[in-house]
């Protein structure tokens, strides 16, 4: 096969469901690009790893010595550090993915015209959406792996179910990246990114990362239960403490829907923005 035969190879079958030409089945080339570029931006990646560890030290050990234990998901008491660690795990998956899929994507979209350059090749908007979301996912996965290792060393993983926290963190990162990228495609200027902070920071603080849902009155509880980070925290906390029940599948479904909506909206919007 010559080089060009490879270049024009048809996309896989399912891609025919998409509007013509929007997927060349080559989104991994965007991963290659991001990996190459990140060789120069590794400090940013390291800092994303360190942040939840700092929180765990400050809150888990510091505050934890005052709080003592809290009832875990199945009612048995667990240390405060073991209680917040899965929350921090979920939050770090969210933060890494959202950062990549919003700030970084916006820069490439508006200033670098990177995606314009890609769309002049056989790549289509779906390749770009999947490739960028995939990178955010890898980055989120890297953070999650690092943080899970810290939890293991600190003795905060009390169940073999914790092994599943990693794929769960990947799904959470994927879903947040997909929604983040979709949201970014609607942004007009850097000012709009204040909205991202406005969405992410309160979620981080209030979506049961640091204390149980029970502290809220019922109407507020319902509000919190709608937030994606709440579902991520529930999922992680169930897995790392071994309190596994069928309800976790509901949380999983939440992220599957979120990821699918995000990918479709992001690809459509890229197409509308760039292929005019």
């Amino acid at each position: 096969m010559t080089a060009l035969d490879t270049a024009t190879r048809a996309a896989p079958g399912w891609a025919r469901l998409l509007p013509g030409g929007s997927y060349a089945g080559r989104s991994r080339m965007l991963l290659l690009r991001s990996a190459t570029a990140s060789r120069r931006t590794w400090p940013a990646i390291v800092s994303g790893f360190a942040e939840p560890v700092f929180y765990l030290l400050a809150m888990g050990s510091g505050l934890g010595s005052l709080v003592g234990t809290l009832p875990g998901p199945d009612g048995r008491p667990i240390s405060y550090a073991a209680w917040i660690a899965p929350g921090l795990l979920a939050a770090s998956a969210m933060n890494g993915a959202v950062f990549d899929a919003t700030f970084n994507v916006f820069f490439k979209l508006k200033y670098n015209r990177l995606y314009d350059a890609m769309l002049a090749t056989p790549l289509g908007p779906v390749d770009i959406a999947l490739g960028e979301i995939g990178w955010a996912l890898l980055r989120g996965g890297l953070y999650a792996t690092g943080f899970l290792s810290v939890m293991a060393v600190a003795g905060l993983l009390t169940s073999p179910w914790a092994l599943l926290a990693l794929p769960a963190a990947l799904l959470v990162a994927f879903a947040f990246a997909a929604i983040g990228m979709a949201a970014t495609s609607f942004m007009r200027s850097w000012q709009d990114f204040d909205l991202v902070t406005l969405a992410v920071l309160p979620m981080f603080l209030f979506a049961t990362t640091f204390y149980p849902l029970g502290v809220y009155p019922r109407p507020l509880q319902i509000l919190v239960e709608c937030l994606p980070l709440f579902h991520a925290v529930e999922l992680m906390r169930g897995l790392t403490t071994g309190a596994v029940h069928l309800g976790l599948l509901g949380h999983l479904a939440y992220f599957l829907v979120m990821a699918a909506v995000g990918v479709v909206v992001a690809a459509r919007r890229l197409e509308a923005l760039l292929l005019r």
Binding site: A3, T6, A7, T8, R9, A24, R26, M29, L32, R33, T36, A117, M118, T121, P122, L123
Partner: peptide, 10 residues
């Protein structure tokens, strides 16, 4: 090099 990879070239 990366641009060439977008074309699926080895």
């Amino acid at each position: 090099e990366i641009y060439g990879r977008y074309f699926g070239l080895p």
